[in-house]
């Protein structure tokens, strides 16, 4: 068959289709990012060819969040001689090839934070508005993945341009088209017709991935239980181990906290007002004139986890933990947010 290029279409394709999709994204002017095997893990890099893509998800170090919310950005420039302010918000064309369902859910959470209010954040919007997503469903769970507990994976059924699920024979993928742009990326592509069996394989593989998750967290009533467990002795136990290094928050795909600060060059001709990532784990985060609201490490650690598993639900109606497991992987003190949730709620 030949794909018509319409939303709602589906087909079975081989890996050669990835080359075509990537090439079409690049032709349209997108910088395309995907996970590449590097330093023994998966790292989001600009892709040259689709052959560089790693199909096995290892979580990686930084999530792709930096593509739509950079670690540091200039909001405007101030000419100190003329007193003129210049704000240059240029639309950015980027695409992610092989983003995972958990990271898509994290993106949706950030959309609510930055675009959900009366005044959408224009810097975020400039990077978000034109952001094609080619999503890989997860057919295996990593050791620290708990997306199935958080309701954010291993499969996705919304907010994708293209959705790809690896079927049980290597090199066969179920391709689903989720948008007009997704359609354009596959129009006229030669493919096999997707049969019912292919869908059965997809669903079985996703169910297996969920069932085989080695990390779990029951979320029923979790915010209330976390509030009640604010004084649980486990907080002391883990904060005794915690380095307060902020590794966990720095790899979190939903963390959005920031500093806004001014940077002026030596000649004092220009000041740039910048925004950069900050984290509740930093001592400076809760500092005010005359004190600090979270001077103790236990308070900073608890703020991080309570925000993810409790406060975010009060703020946005969803957990700002998508179960990607990165904070667990990269904690040098072996602190585990899922374990913490289980302990506080009395499941562990």
């Amino acid at each position: 068959m030949v794909l018509q290029g319409q939303a709602g279409e589906n087909a079975v394709v081989g890996r050669d289709a990835f080359d075509e999709i990537l090439a079409r994204l690049q032709e349209r002017g997108y910088a395309v990012y995907g996970t590449v095997n590097e330093k023994g893990t998966g790292i989001f890099r600009p892709l040259g060819g689709a052959g560089e893509l790693s199909l096995r998800c290892t979580g990686g170090t930084l999530p792709p969040k930096y593509l739509w919310y950079p670690p540091s950005e200039t909001m405007f420039t101030y000419d100190r001689q003329s007193g003129a302010l210049r704000s240059e918000i240029e639309p950015v064309k980027q695409a992610v090839f092989g983003i995972r369902p958990c990271d898509v859910h994290a993106l949706l959470a950030l959309d609510e934070v930055f675009l959900g209010g009366d005044y959408p954040d224009p810097y975020y919007r400039a990077r978000r508005e034109d952001l094609p997503l080619v999503v890989f469903n997860c057919v295996e769970s990593g050791d620290t993945c708990f997306c199935s507990s958080m309701g954010t994976g291993p499969g996705l059924d919304h907010d994708y341009d293209l959705l790809i699920t690896e079927l049980d024979r290597p090199g066969r993928f179920l391709l689903e088209v989720g948008s007009g742009l997704g359609g354009e990326l596959v129009r006229d592509l030669r493919a096999e017709v997707a049969r019912d069996e292919d869908y059965q394989v997809k669903h079985r593989r996703l169910e297996d991935a969920a069932a085989n998750a080695r990390t779990t967290l029951e979320t029923e009533d979790l915010p209330r239980l976390m509030s009640e467990g604010h004084g649980h002795p486990y907080w002391r136990e883990i904060s005794d181990k915690c380095f307060g290094c902020a590794n966990c928050t720095s790899v979190c795909p939903t963390c959005y906290c920031a500093d806004i600060f001014d940077e002026t060059d030596f000649s004092l001709t220009e000041t740039r007002r910048k925004r950069r990532w900050s984290w509740c784990f930093l001592m400076e985060f809760g500092a005010v004139h005359g004190g600090n609201f979270r001077e103790r490490r236990i308070d900073r650690l608890r703020q991080f986890m309570q925000h993810k598993l409790n406060f975010s639900v009060g703020q946005y109606g969803r957990f700002h933990c998508v179960g990607c497991g990165r904070c667990i992987v990269w904690c040098p003190a072996n602190i585990d947010i899922a374990q913490t949730g289980r302990t506080i709620r009395g499941d562990a």
């Binding site: 023994g40 930084l62 380095f243 290094c245 902020a246 590794n247 720095s250 790899v251 930093l282 400076e284």
Partner: peptide, 29 residues
């Protein structure tokens, strides 16, 4: 700033030496 060396590693996408290599790296302190 009160940031740790760890955050500079993360921003460079270095793989953590404590976690991956078992090196007693003092970056956390």
């Amino acid at each position: 700033s009160t940031r740790s060396v760890c955050l500079e590693c993360k921003m460079k996408e270095n793989v953590c030496l404590i976690v991956a290599e078992g090196v007693a790296c003092m970056g956390v302190l």
